[in-house]
Design a protein around this nucleic acid. Structure first.
Lengths: 178, 178
DNA sequence: TACTTCGTTTAGAACGTTCTAAACGATTTG
DNA sequence: CAAATCGTTTAGAACGTTCTAAACGAAGTA
């Protein structure tokens, strides 16, 4: 195998291994996905294990994470008892399910608590202190709602739409203060 | 103190304590911020420690995280040796510095590795395998870039702009397939 | 100067997470 | 049926993280 190609792969494994935490994955899962993402053809469980130097058991667990998030599909070749894995290469799809399955429920939980908090505060004695608390809680709620609709908007537009939109905005609002 | 008000506070502490991991904070830091966010007036270190039931030392450490992210400011009252803390209530500002100080460097690191990976692959033997790898890597790079410009756009527009924009899009593209 | 009262720092305990190694059941092959 | 191959499960080791408790330094007070 070409040496430069394989170190190119190794570096991507490093890159995605580091970032995996951000997407809510373990390091192993991130590295696995990287190996599959740059694999020209589907790889067997043992092959993946060998490439990133972990045990089979470890792969078996990490695969389930990736499957559940739609990041990896399971393949079977006829006359071959082994299982092969194939990456989902559409990041937009992946973002969609990661948000839906991981982030959304987590946010919803917090959002519900904030609502409960607002309910309680609204039933308290109407003092000035209560009013400031209520105001703060509502601001927080607004922020949650805005975040949510931003994400939904981005997902509904897809990569093409978002690309056009950000470019359009850069033209209209060139004085971004970053 | 009003019982409903204080349980309203407790619930928010719970809510932000859970979500803190998402923003790259420890549980304690999230809870601290919640206490300050709903405090009508600035609180002393000891007061905060008592409210969320951790030691002073713990608060001292967590405060620095929050200060560095611009989530909390430090106040001094004359003739009072104690330090008081006041929350930043502008979530947009907070998002700005969290992204700039935490997420951005992390992404940049990965992005640089992807570039390095592309460089290596481009110098490899021009086989079909290399070409598919190159194509994949470039797709990944595009995705990174799109994410980055989405974030920058959102930050430059601010909450008002984003609100208008998402509402406008909901009118123009009512058939979002979520 | 001795005594408090602060916030910070540090050593180590407690905890959850993530890995390995090995046993296991299921399936195929000789 | 015996042996080998494969993926899964499990017990426990190794690790990093996060907490407490206690020592500490700095700054005010009697």
């Amino acid at each position: 195998m070409d040496n430069q190609l394989s170190s190119s792969r190794d570096i991507l494994v490093q890159a995605l291994g580091r970032q995996s935490a951000f997407w809510g994955l373990g390091k192993t899962a991130g590295e696995m996905y990287a190996v599959l993402y740059l694999g020209a053809e589907p790889l067997s469980l043992e092959e993946v294990a060998k490439r990133i130097k972990v045990t089979k058991g470890n792969i078996s667990v990490a695969i389930r994470q990736l499957e559940q998030l739609g990041m990896v599909r399971r393949l079977h070749k006829i006359g071959d008892r082994r299982v092969y894995f194939e990456p989902e290469t559409d990041f937009w799809k992946i973002a969609h399910s990661v948000l839906a399955l991981r982030h959304k429920p987590e946010f919803q939980e917090s959002f519900d608590l904030v609502e409960e908090s607002i309910g309680l505060a609204s039933r308290a004695e109407p003092t000035p202190e209560r009013d400031t608390i209520m105001a703060r809680l509502k601001e927080l709620q607004d922020f949650y709602r805005l975040l949510d609709s931003m994400v939904e908007t981005a997902l509904s537009l897809g990569p093409g739409g978002m690309k056009k939109m950000t470019e359009a905005i850069k033209l209209l609002v060139p004085d971004h203060k970053l």
